[in-house]
């Protein structure tokens, strides 16, 4: 079985030393304003290229859209 993670409930292949930036690239997420939670923990923008995502992680990317 390939090693996976879930991004917004979609299963994708896990890679060694995977970062948030890498996930956003794979998912083709180009949204400007996002909030990222990995296994329930908030990851701030400064850590998108340093925080390593473990195998089996649940990653949630929330796209914030103007309007209210």
């Amino acid at each position: 079985m390939d090693k996976k993670i879930e991004v917004n409930k979609e299963k994708i292949d896990w890679e060694e030393n995977m970062t948030v930036d890498r996930i956003l690239k794979i998912m083709n997420y180009t949204f400007k304003m996002i909030v990222v939670k990995v296994n329930g923990e908030l990851v701030k923008k400064d850590n998108y290229n340093t925080k390593i995502i473990p195998e089996g992680s649940d990653v949630q990317v929330i796209h914030l859209i103007a309007g209210g």
Binding site: K32, M33, I34, L42, I62, L64, A66, G67, G68
Partner: peptide, 16 residues
Amino acid sequence: AFDEAGMKKMLIESWI
């Protein structure tokens, strides 16, 4: 209940 996306992000992250 903000309008701007940047304000929404700030509020969520500060709150969490």
